[in-house]
């Protein structure tokens, strides 16, 4: 076990870390004198510089942040909803629905990306459907406009003035752009493919919940919504934590769809840190910066996992208390 962990986990991470603080340029083994120690230079180049490397990281962070903020809640809610629906014993053909909802998850993400590229092309199925409804759909994968900018634009608000870069080389107007139209397609794609997996997790947990509590609530006269909101979801908290954690990790590592589908286009609005790390290393031979970006991504994932854990932390309340809503207002446990 120690050998396996060491070989496949500790050594690669240590080597990647060494690369991130070295000037290795991709020729020869970085451990044998081909690279020199340069301290935090790679990190400061991508974080504090005023050049393209910093701007690209800023864009990638922004894009991925909006992606995470959209995908994690949507897929969690959708997965929970689907699980509750197919868990009910009364649903006819629930075996079929379970398989159907899980199906996107077992399909190769590359295949689904390609299908989506066709569905969302300028005259693809989605836009034809919208045309039937009298809506002129955008040219999805070629549209770099951010949805927040579009929404503001609808009210006549344009970039008020050029404020200059505030963080990672982007101006605050660029930070608030929201996901681009193209990124929205990737968001839909992610929710579509991963909800089935998480539905399965919720379903497994639902099946292990004691039936007596539910029955007691029915006897007490709780409505179905109250039973879901006050009993089922709080009891699913460990699963909820797992789903959100896996969701955060997976979404921050968005790579496949970008690599196979958009390559960061349009207008670098689907650039993500994982893809940027790959591109910086393999295309630009800036391996130190690429590794530094990977470690920054790692730090972000750890921090967001810890934040998620803190938000979903166990409080000294028990389920029965939660049946009295007035008791603890604003606990905001996310349940």
């Amino acid at each position: 076990m120690v050998v396996i962990l060491g070989l496949f986990l500790v050594v690669p991470i240590a080597m990647a870390f060494w690369v991130s603080v070295s000037d290795w340029r991709g020729v020869g083994n970085p451990m044998t004198g081909a690279a020199r120690f340069v301290g935090a230079a790679n990190y400061s180049d991508v974080l504090l510089g005023d050049g393209l490397a910093t701007k690209d990281l800023g864009r990638a962070m922004r894009n991925n942040l909006y992606y995470v903020l959209a995908v994690v809640p949507l897929q969690t809610i959708l997965a929970l909803t689907l699980a509750v629906l197919v868990h009910r014993r009364v649903v006819a053909g629930r075996g079929f629905f379970r398989s159907a909802f899980y199906f996107p998850s077992v399909t190769s993400s590359v295949a689904i990306t390609v299908v989506f590229l066709f569905l969302f092309s300028a005259t693809g199925a989605v836009n034809r459907l919208l045309a039937v409804l009298g809506v002129e759909g955008p040219n999805w994968f070629a549209d770099p406009r951010g949805v927040v900018h579009l929404a503001l634009g609808a009210f006549g608000i344009r970039a008020p003035y050029e404020s200059g870069p505030v963080l990672l080389g982007l101006s605050w107007w660029n930070w608030i752009s929201g996901p681009s139209v193209a990124m929205c397609v990737l968001i839909v794609l992610a929710v579509f493919t991963t909800s089935g997996t998480f539905m399965l997790l919720f379903l497994a947990a639902l099946q292990h919940l004691p039936g007596e509590v539910e029955e007691a609530a029915v006897v007490d006269g709780a409505t179905p919504w109250q039973r879901l909101h006050r009993i089922t979801v709080p009891m699913l908290r460990p699963t909820l934590f797992t789903v959100i954690t896996l969701g955060l990790i997976g979404t921050w590592q968005l790579f496949d769809q970008v690599y196979t589908g958009t390559q960061g286009t349009p207008g670098k609005t689907t650039l993500t840190p994982a893809y940027l790390s790959y591109q910086t290393s393999f295309q630009q031979q800036e391996w130190g910066q690429g590794a530094a970006i990977a470690f920054l991504l790692f730090a972000i994932i750890v921090v967001s996992t810890l934040v998620g854990r803190w938000l979903l932390r166990e409080r000294d309340t028990t389920a029965p208390h939660r049946l009295r809503p007035a008791r603890r207002p604003g606990t905001g446990s996310g349940s």
Binding site: F8, L9, P12, I13, M15, A16, V19, I249, Q253, F255, A274, S277, Y278, T280, S281, F282, W287, G290, A291, I293, A294, F295, L297, F298, I301
Partner: peptide, 8 residues
């Protein structure tokens, strides 16, 4: 996961 995305 981070090891996988190391890009090196």
């Amino acid at each position: 996961a981070a090891a996988c995305s190391g890009g090196t």
